[in-house]
């Protein structure tokens, strides 16, 4: 997966994996609903960087088309998530995921 046509191609792969690690850490170790959405956003950024850096001189237009579509999808998912966060806050004045009462597995 390392791009052999880029100088220092391995740096881009390292950045992708670092973003994925930070994103998954944020989802699994944080309790506020908004932080979970921030974690999802960081994971998406990592994947976009993978798509663009891995197809550097040849497929760059197709890669840009894919990244544009991924960003549009992310906007819609974030908007729905934030709407649900506001809704949950209006119901019970708390945005802590440990307060979800029916987490009975």
């Amino acid at each position: 997966m390392a791009n052999n046509l880029l100088p220092y191609g391995w740096m881009y792969v390292y950045t992708v994996f670092a973003m994925l690690f930070i994103g998954f850490y944020c989802i699994f170790a944080r309790r506020s609903m908004i932080r979970l959405l921030i974690g999802l956003e960081i994971i998406s950024k990592g994947i976009c960087l993978l798509i663009i850096s891995g197809s550097y001189p040849q497929n760059i237009t197709t890669a840009q088309a894919l990244v544009i579509t991924v960003i549009v999808i992310e906007v819609c998912v974030m908007a729905v998530g934030l709407g649900l966060v506001i809704n949950a806050f209006r119901h019970s004045a708390s945005i802590d995921v440990r307060d979800f009462s029916n987490l009975k597995g």
Binding site: C48, I68, I71, E74, V75
Partner: peptide
């Protein structure tokens, strides 16, 4: 990386639109 359109989308949509949504939610 010679991907100007992806860069424009990333800056204007992610750093613009999504962050504005987040800030609106936080202030609400």
């Amino acid at each position: 990386l010679h991907a100007p359109y992806a860069g424009v989308f990333e800056i204007s949509v992610v750093a613009g639109l999504i962050m504005v949504l987040f800030i609106m939610t936080i202030s609400l």
